[in-house]
Design a protein around this nucleic acid. Structure first.
Length: 536
RNA sequence: GCUGGGUUCGUAUAACGGUUAGUACUCAAGAUUCUCAAUCUUGCAAUAUGGGUUCGAUUCCCGUACCCAGUACCA
């Protein structure tokens, strides 16, 4: 049994979008499940579309997701450039492998499976325009190649001359006429295509001495001993060509098996997910933030506050299911549960709401301490900036907790424990519980108009005075009991009195429980906030 | 246009010929609470369509519609 070897082969023409991450993920899961290797190969055979930083972005994004290659990249996340014992298949960048492809192209020509074509781009464009004008589509195939300039039509001497003198020729695959190619796909089952509908694809370009995707892909998959090719659906139409290429090289015995994944579709309307949809609907389509060469920024899941585990979990379930009702999967769980025959054939519409839901679930799974650690920088930043409150004013903090101490961490941890069920992202914590860290300065006008009436706040004041003078132990339960019992025993309207109190403490009539707020901010801070609102 | 792929509640999906077509997200209502959120309960909502095959089709076959991809010296 051969060792499973799969590869993710992105083209560094821009940031990897979430559909690409999903393809990488499925490759990774498949490899790990079978005890095999996951390889990254950079397909940069198009010199015109190279985007600086894209390659690094792709590797960093996968790393953030926990998709770590066994091969292709070294410990530092750099693409391996020279072969070694650990990386006998290096280099992993096709531009650095350019020397190896030509011989394979020539081999096919010698075997009569391919030929030299000398038509210029302009000539072909002209033919296409001509055909279009006649309401037809020009295809470079068994029919048209007889009337084009190539080694099948030109005399041998002329071919030799052009080969020597021209730098603008290509090697084209000689697609057979009217032959049915039977193929098998791990997800879609048996497929058959007649070669007459296919064209003579360019395999190698003399102009930049680089192969096209098709040649490079087959040669490298063969050389790298890839056992399964798991890739996007956009490749399905070229599968017959790839089958035929394996056959032409005589590599049928070791040909990998293929699985074509459906595409990720936009949340509303039709079509595949694009960067624009994210911008329009306010969700990221990229794992990490990306700044394009023009300086435009695109949102990233990481920067928007998603946990990588949640992102990966969500992505895994988009087009695959475990066969039961489970939804929460760690990477380990996914590796165990993944199976190709549960991968959906149809494209999956991405649902941003569900993505948020996953994050909420993962947030709850995290410990208070871990969340506090993540929240602390956000908190300190909020306190230091924007809000107009000087950093580290312990006076206004519950229990007088100063910045940078274990007491602060403990306080933040407790706050997080109280509020984490209300949040989707760590950065939500501030909006939910900012008033546990600083006193309100302004008060919600609508709530004030509704509750802040003499007949209410006078009662509230009495209840608070009673509480502060009661000498009870300052715990949530004791505070709650004291307040509720006192208000009830006087037969005061509970809602009105309580909301007046909340208004004084938090600036609004909706939010955390009164007793919770009080237990956190402490007696002194309570007194000062009450005094403040009455002083207005 | 041609070639290939696809089609179960709004969305993601389950049901490998026999179910009151299940679950999750979203949404709505109720319960709970001092409010909001959370939570719990309930509810809304689907087999694209027309023919076969079969005792019986979401499931198998064919047609139609619609969607997607490919149709480059891009991947």
């Amino acid at each position: 049994m051969k060792k499973t070897r799969v590869r993710f082969a992105p083209s560094p023409t821009g940031p990897l979008h979430m559909g690409g991450v999903r393809t990488a993920l499925y490759n990774y899961l498949y490899a790990k499940q079978n005890g095999g290797d996951f390889i990254i190969r950079i397909e940069d055979t198009d010199s015109h579309r190279f985007v600086p930083g894209a390659e690094q972005y792709i590797i960093e994004a996968l790393r953030w997701c926990g998709i770590i290659p066994d091969e292709g990249v070294d410990e530092n996340g750099k693409v391996v450039e020279t072969a070694s014992e650990r990386h006998p298949h290096a280099p992993y960048r096709q531009s650095q492998r350019r020397g190896i492809y030509r011989q394979y192209a020539e081999q096919l020509v010698k075997a009569g499976q391919a030929y030299y074509a000398f038509d210029s781009s302009e000539e072909l464009d002209a033919r296409r325009a001509e055909a279009e004008a006649a309401g037809k589509t020009f295809i470079y195939n068994y029919e048209t190649r007889r009337s084009l300039r190539n080694s099948l039509t030109l005399p041998p001497e002329e071919v030799d001359r052009l080969l020597r003198e021209s730098t603008d020729w290509t090697v084209r695959f000689k697609m057979p006429e009217n032959t049915v190619v039977p193929m098998d796909d791990l997800i879609r089952g048996h497929i058959e295509v007649n070669t007459s509908t296919l064209d003579d694809k360019v395999l190698w370009k003399r102009a930049d001495e680089l192969p096209t995707y098709h040649l490079a892909n087959i040669v490298d998959d063969h050389l790298m001993e890839i056992t399964e090719v798991i890739r996007g659906e956009e490749w399905l139409p070229s599968l017959p060509l790839h089958y035929l290429l394996y056959k032409a090289f005589g590599w049928e015995d070791t040909m990998p098996r293929f699985a074509h994944l459906s595409l990720l579709l936009k949340p509303v309307g039709n079509g595949k997910l694009s960067k624009r949809d994210g911008d329009k609907m306010g969700f990221p389509v990229f794992p990490l933030e990306w700044t394009n060469p023009e300086g435009e920024k695109s949102h990233g899941y990481r920067e928007d506050g998603y946990f990588p585990e949640a992102f990966v979990n969500m992505l895994a379930l988009l087009g695959w299911n475990p066969g039961d009702d489970r939804e929460i999967f760690s990477m380990e769980d996914l590796i165990k549960a993944f199976s190709m025959d549960k991968v959906q054939k149809a494209g999956a519409k991405f649902n941003p709401d569900k993505a948020k839901w996953f994050n909420k679930e993962y947030l709850r799974l995290k410990s208070d301490a871990e969340l506090a650690e993540l929240f602390l920088p956000v908190l300190l930043d909020k306190l230091a900036s924007g809000s107009g409150v000087p950093a580290g004013t312990p006076k206004s903090w519950g229990n007088g907790v100063p910045v940078g101490t274990p007491e602060l961490m403990e306080y933040v941890t407790n706050v997080v424990g109280l509020i984490k069920e209300r949040a989707t992202f760590v950065q939500d914590f501030w909006d939910i519980a900012w008033y546990l860290f600083k006193a309100p300065e302004t008060f919600n006008e609508k709530d004030m108009a509704k509750f802040w009436k003499e007949e209410n706040y006078s009662l509230m004041k009495k209840a608070v005075d009673n509480l502060l003078e009661s000498g009870i132990e300052w715990t949530r339960e004791a505070i709650e009991t004291n307040l509720v019992d006192y208000i009830k025993s006087n037969e005061w309207p509970m809602g009105k009195v309580m909301n007046c109190l909340r208004l004084a403490l938090s600036g609004s009539a909706s939010g955390l429980g009164i007793a919770d707020i009080l237990s956190f901010i402490g007696k002194e801070e309570c007194r000062s906030r009450i005094d403040y609102i009455f002083s207005l």
